[in-house]
Amino acid sequence: MSRTARTAAPPASRRPLAKPSEIAEYCGVPLGTVYQWSSRGGGPKLIKVGRHLRARWSDIEAWLDSQTIAA
């Protein structure tokens, strides 16, 4: 009998949290802007995981939708 523990794979709908560099690339802004959003407010909701900043992709999309300007 194997002692290797098996873990269930996360559901396909769950993406890994976005890193600041991924947020910057996706939004087309400098990395420093993402860190300014963190310290000054604004931008998508950011999560502190230990000492690292992360964001849910759904929060990024929701924030981008809220920034849409009606013509």
Rank of each mutant, 00 (worst) to 15 (best):
S2N: 15
S2V: 13
T4M: 12
T4Y: 10
T4Q: 14
T4A: 15
A5S: 13
R6V: 10
T7Y: 15
A8V: 08
A9G: 06
P10S: 13
P10L: 13
P11N: 07
S13Y: 13
S13V: 13
R14I: 11
R15L: 11
P16N: 06
L17C: 09
L17K: 12
L17Q: 13
A18L: 15
K19C: 05
P20H: 06
P20N: 02
E22R: 03
E22V: 01
A24H: 04
A24C: 04
A24M: 03
E25N: 02
E25K: 08
Y26R: 15
C27Q: 05
C27Y: 04
G28W: 00
G28I: 04
V29F: 09
P30M: 00
V34E: 05
V34L: 05
Q36T: 10
Q36W: 07
W37C: 06
S39P: 01
S39V: 12
G41K: 00
G42T: 00
G42P: 01
G43A: 06
G43T: 03
G43L: 02
G43R: 04
K45P: 11
L46M: 14
L46V: 03
I47W: 07
I47P: 01
K48S: 11
V49P: 00
V49H: 10
V49Q: 10
V49G: 00
V49A: 10
G50I: 13
G50P: 12
G50E: 12
R51A: 08
L53Y: 05
R54Q: 04
R54F: 02
A55M: 10
A55I: 10
A55R: 08
R56L: 14
W57A: 03
D59C: 05
E61I: 15
E61Q: 14
A62K: 15
A62N: 09
A62D: 12
L64Y: 05
D65R: 15
D65L: 14
D65T: 11
S66E: 03
S66V: 02
Q67T: 15
Q67G: 08
T68A: 13
T68D: 01
I69C: 04
I69V: 15
A70M: 09
A70W: 09
A70P: 02
A70G: 09
A71W: 05
